[in-house]
Design a protein around this nucleic acid. Sequence first.
DNA 1: CTCTGTGCAAACACTTTGCAGCTAA
DNA 2: TTAGCTGCAAAGTGTTTGCACAGAG
Lengths: 149, 149
Amino acid sequence: MLNDSEKLKIKIDDFKAKCREKGLKITPQRLAVYQTLLKSKMHPSAEMLFREVRKEVPNISLDTVNRTLLTLADIGDAFILEGSGDVKRFDADLKNHQHFKCVKCKKIIDFHHKPFDNIKVPESISSKYIVLRKTVYLEGICDICRKKK
Amino acid sequence: MLNDSEKLKIKIDDFKAKCREKGLKITPQRLAVYQTLLKSKMHPSAEMLFREVRKEVPNISLDTVNRTLLTLADIGDAFILEGSGDVKRFDADLKNHQHFKCVKCKKIIDFHHKPFDNIKVPESISSKYIVLRKTVYLEGICDICRKKK
DNA sequence: CTCTGTGCAAACACTTTGCAGCTAA
DNA sequence: TTAGCTGCAAAGTGTTTGCACAGAG
C-alpha cells in the first residue's frame, strides 16, 4: 500500500501528464491550486482555497484560483459540487420527487422514481446529524441540448 | 378526486392558516408569490418568478419576491433546490461518495454509503438524457450547529 | 393604532471579462 | 519565439440591507 504522500505524488504526475496532453501549461500556480485542493477536505470555495494557496504562493490572485478551478472541472480533475454556484431556485412541490438538471441550459426536470423515495440514510449520518431533506440528484445534458451539439 | 383549482384553493387556505399561526401577515404580494410558485413547473429563480408575478401584481418589487421566497423556505412551504444559491464549491475527490450539507453553517460533510454508489437511473431518464453525475444529497443540521441551538 | 411588509436605493458578495505583461514550452 | 497564463481592474449578476411609508390585523 502506498502512503499518502506517494499517492499525492502520483496524482500530481498524472495531472501534469494530462495538462501536457491537453496543451495546458504547467505553471506553479496551477500546481499549487491543484495540490491544495487535493489536500483540502472541506470542499472549498474559490475564496477559501485562495486563502489556503496563498500560504504557499503569496502573490497568487483570486482570479487565477477561480480560473484554475474551472479548468480543473473542465478537464475532469475536479468537479463542482451539485448545482452550487447557480442562482437560487425554488420549488413548492413538497411531494416526493427528484430532479435532473441540464448543465447546459440549467433547466431542471422533475421525475419521480419510486425506489428513490425512501432511500435509507446510513446510521453514521442519522445518529449524528439531523437530516431534513434527502434527495437523489442527477446532472447531465437534456434532450434539446443534446441535439444542438 | 379534487380538480386542480380545488387543490390549489386548499393549499392557499392552508398557507393562510400557517401565516396566521406564525404571525405573518397575509398580503396580496405574499399570496401572489406563493400562488405563482405553486403553479410554476419550472423551479423558478427569484428573477423568473418575479417576471411571472408581475403579470398579476404589476408593481411588486423583486426584493419582495426574494424575501417572500425566503420566508416560504423558512416556514417549510417551499424549498431551495439542492445546493443552488451558494458559492461554487469544488471537490477533487473523484471517488464515489456522497455529501451531507449543513444548512446552517454550510459545511459539507463527505460520507460513503455503498448502497448509494450504484443507484439505478430510471429508464425514462436514461433513454432521453445523458446522465453525467448522479448523487444522493442530504441536507440538514450538523452536530455542532445542533448543539448551538 | 401598531407593527410587519413593501418598495426603493445603496451596499455587498461572488464571478466574469478585457487587457498588458509574463512565462512555460 | 509564441501561445497560453497571470494579475489587476472593471463590469456584471444576484442577493442583502437600511429606511420611510403603507397597509394588515
